[in-house]
């Protein structure tokens, strides 16, 4: 949030010629102040992330799945005091995962937390996506012209009787060229690219894992998918 400072100038009577000059200077100062404010706003702030994701083109697997999004996942907000970067990611990733799961399986329904022990309806699997880490590197940090984003997820897979049967980690990447005057918009675009990369990982690698039940159990070490 920006604070607004109201500048007051004492009125001094001067002959017409000087009044004109003073007006020019005041206008010049105002333009300079505006420029400084715009410049400062480009150093940090809120990142706009588009929340449009197309429907994935994929043949559905014959599974009825339940999906649970924890409050930490669905309302995740990235906030970095040092970078002064602040944006909401939770609703965007819920929208993406919802679209992907809806396309990947014959049916997808929202369920309650499987760890709560509540009985679930007749399902083949229950999926719980978890965001482990969101990170980005600015062009200054990589000495390139790009913002690069990585999002670390894992999917917890439960049986219909709420027993955890699998754990599938993966990392999604995105990058976008930075513009000289575009502020944090390229970071938002790099984040969208990373979310779309997550969709690509889900419809291919996670789908294969579901078909072959190639999970690992929590705590087991296995190279992460990237």
């Amino acid at each position: 949030m920006h604070s607004i400072t109201v500048l007051k100038f004492n009125r001094i009577y001067r002959p017409a010629k000087h009044r004109l000059a003073r007006k020019d200077w005041a206008a010049g100062r105002l333009i300079l102040l505006t420029g400084v404010l715009i410049g400062l706003s480009a150093c940090g702030g809120t990142v706009a992330i588009r929340d449009y994701f197309p429907d994935p083109v994929v043949a559905p697997l014959p599974y009825q799945v339940g999906v649970y999004y924890s409050p930490e996942f669905s309302s995740y907000r990235y906030h970095n005091e040092e970078d002064k970067v602040n944006f909401e990611l939770g609703s965007k990733q819920v929208r993406l995962f919802d679209k992907v799961f809806a396309a990947m399986f014959t049916s997808r329904t929202a369920v309650s937390d499987p760890d709560s022990g509540q009985a679930q309806q007749q399902l083949d699997l229950i999926l719980v996506p978890v965001l482990d880490e969101y990170a980005f590197l600015s062009p200054a940090e990589t000495a390139t012209n790009f913002y690069t984003v990585s999002i670390k997820y894992h999917i917890r897979v439960y049986s219909a009787d709420n027993q955890i049967i699998g754990y599938w980690p993966f990392v999604a990447y995105g990058k976008n060229r930075s513009g000289s005057m575009s502020g944090l918009e390229p970071l938002g675009d790099a984040t969208v690219t990373a979310l779309r990369d997550a969709a690509a990982a889900l419809v291919t690698q996670f789908r294969r894992a579901v078909e072959t039940e190639d999970w690992r159990l929590p705590g087991e070490s296995k190279q992460e998918t990237s």
């Binding site: 083109v57 043949a59 990447y173 690219t193 779309r196 690509a200 419809v203």
Partner: peptide, 26 residues
């Protein structure tokens, strides 16, 4: 339109790979 088959992770790198991709009816 072909999401996500032309995202960086999955985009074909050779022309021959497009033929394999297009073997999927959907």
């Amino acid at each position: 339109e072909l999401f996500p088959w032309f995202e960086s992770r999955l985009a074909p790198t050779r022309a021959e790979s497009v033929g394999i991709l297009l073997e999927q009816p959907h």
